[in-house]
Simulated scan of single mutants.
Amino acid sequence: MSMGKRLGAEFFGTFWLVFGGCGSAIFAATFPGLGIGFAGVALAFGLTVVTMAYAVGHISGGHFNPAVTLGLCAGGRFAAKDVLPYIVAQVVGGLVAGGVLYLIATGKPGFDPSVRFAANGYGANSPGGYSLEACMLAELVLTAFFLIVIHGATDKRAPAGFGPLAIGLALTLIHLISIPVTATSVNPARSTAVAFFQGTWAVQQLWMFWLVPLVGGVLGGLIYRYLLETRD
C-alpha cells in the first residue's frame, strides 16, 4: 500500500475518532433530559475505533493515535521510519475534526469553547479535580494497557477478525475509568485537536497529554514484546 493512502487512512481515522468521541462529549453528554453521560461518551470513543479499524485498518493498520504508533514501533510491529509521517497525519486529522466541531458548536448562540470543549486537563481542570500526579499515573497505566491489548488482539495467534472489537472495547473501558480524572486522553492527537480551540488552559496543559501517553505507549509495547509475546 502506498504511503499516501496509508497517511490518508490515518488522517480520516483520527478525524472520525475526534469528531465522534469529542463531538459526543460536546453535544450529547449533558443535553437537557436526554444526555448520554460518561457511559455514552465512552461508548462513542470505542465505536469510532471499531468502525474505522474495520473501514481503513487494512490500509494503514488503524493507529489513529501517536501513542499507538510509537508503541507499535517499540513492540517491533511498525517501522521507525514511518512513525513521524503517521503522527503528522494523525495530528492534522484531529485538528481538522476539532475545527469542524468548533464551527458546529459556535453555531449555537452563547456557546463558549473555553468552558471545556472536551479538552483534557489536570488539577483544577480535571473533571474530578485530580492532581497532576494522579492524572499522570492514570494516563501512563491506561495507555500502556491499551498497547498491550492492541498487541495481543492483533497477534497472529489471536482469533482472526476480532482485533478491532477488542481494541474498541478496551478504549471504551479506558474512558469509563478515566473521564472523571483527565477527561481521558491516551492519545496526543485527540488532546491537541480540541486544546487549540478551547484556547486557554488546555494548551498550557497539553504537554502532559503528549509526554505521558507516548511514554505509556512505549512501555506497553515493550512489555508485550519482551514479556508476553511468543516468537517462532
Score class of each variant (00 low, 15 high):
Ile36Leu: 15
Gly40Tyr: 02
Ala25Phe: 06
Ala44Gln: 03
Leu34Trp: 14
Ala55Tyr: 02
Ile36Gly: 09
Thr30Glu: 15
Gly57Asp: 06
Cys22Ile: 02
Leu47Glu: 00
Gly40Trp: 01
Ala55Lys: 01
Leu43Asn: 04
Leu43Arg: 05
Ala28Trp: 14
Val49Cys: 05
Pro32Glu: 13
Gly40Arg: 05
Tyr54Pro: 06
Ala55Gly: 08
Ile26His: 11
Ser60Gln: 04
Gly21Ala: 03
Gly46Tyr: 00
Leu47Tyr: 03
Phe38Arg: 15
Tyr54Leu: 07
Gly35Val: 03
Ala25Arg: 04
Pro32Met: 12
Gly57Glu: 06
Val50Phe: 11
Ser60Thr: 05
Phe27Pro: 07
Gly37Leu: 06
Ala28Phe: 15
Ser24Ala: 15
Val41Cys: 11
Gly57Leu: 04
Tyr54Glu: 03
Gly23Cys: 06
Ala44Leu: 03
Phe45Pro: 00
Met52Phe: 10
Phe38Pro: 12
Gly23Asn: 12
Ala55Arg: 02
Ile36Asp: 07
Ser24Leu: 06
Tyr54Ser: 05
Gly21Phe: 03
Gly46Met: 00
Ala55Asp: 06
Ser24Asp: 11
Ser60Asn: 10
Phe27His: 10
Phe27Asp: 01
Gly33Tyr: 01
Pro32Cys: 12
Gly37Ala: 10
Leu43Gln: 07
Tyr54Cys: 02
Val56Met: 12
Thr30His: 14
Ala42Pro: 13
Gly21Lys: 05
Ala28Pro: 15
Val50Cys: 01
Gly46Glu: 01
Gly57Phe: 01
Ile59Gly: 04
Ser24Gly: 12
Thr48Leu: 02
Ala29Tyr: 02
Phe38Met: 14
Ala42Glu: 07
Leu34Gln: 13
Met52Thr: 13
Phe31Trp: 14
Ala28Ile: 14
Phe45Glu: 08
Phe38Gly: 14
Leu34Ala: 15
Phe27Asn: 11
Thr51Pro: 08
Val56Phe: 06
Phe45Arg: 05
Ser24Pro: 08
Val56Glu: 02
Met52Cys: 12
Gly23Leu: 07
Thr48Met: 09
Ser60Pro: 12
Gly23Gln: 11
Ala29Thr: 07
Leu34Ile: 14
Ala42Phe: 04
Leu47Thr: 06
Ala42Asn: 06
Leu43Ile: 13
Ile59Asp: 10
Tyr54Asp: 00
Phe31Lys: 14
Phe27Arg: 03
Pro32Gly: 07
Phe45Ala: 03
Phe27Thr: 03
His58Tyr: 09
Ile26Cys: 09
Val56Gln: 08
Leu34Glu: 13
Phe31Met: 15
Gly37Trp: 01
Gly37Pro: 03
Val41Lys: 05
Leu47Cys: 09
Val41His: 05
Thr30Asp: 15
Ser60Cys: 04
Pro32Tyr: 01
His58Glu: 11
Gly35Ala: 09
Gly21Val: 07
Thr48Gly: 11
Ala25Gln: 13
Ile26Asn: 11
His58Lys: 13
Ala42Asp: 08
Thr48Pro: 02
Met52Val: 07
His58Asp: 13
Ala39Tyr: 08
Phe31Asp: 15
Gly23Phe: 11
Ala39Cys: 09
Leu43Asp: 07
Ala29Cys: 09
Gly57Lys: 02
Ala25Glu: 13
Ala53Asn: 12
Ala39Phe: 12
Ile36Lys: 10
Ile26Trp: 07
Thr48Asp: 05
Gly46Leu: 01
Gly33Ser: 06
Ile36Ala: 12
Thr48Cys: 12
Met52Tyr: 01
Thr30Lys: 14
Gly35Gln: 09
Phe31Glu: 14
Leu34Phe: 15
Ala53Lys: 07
Leu47Val: 10
Gly33Gln: 08
Thr51Lys: 00
Phe31Ser: 15
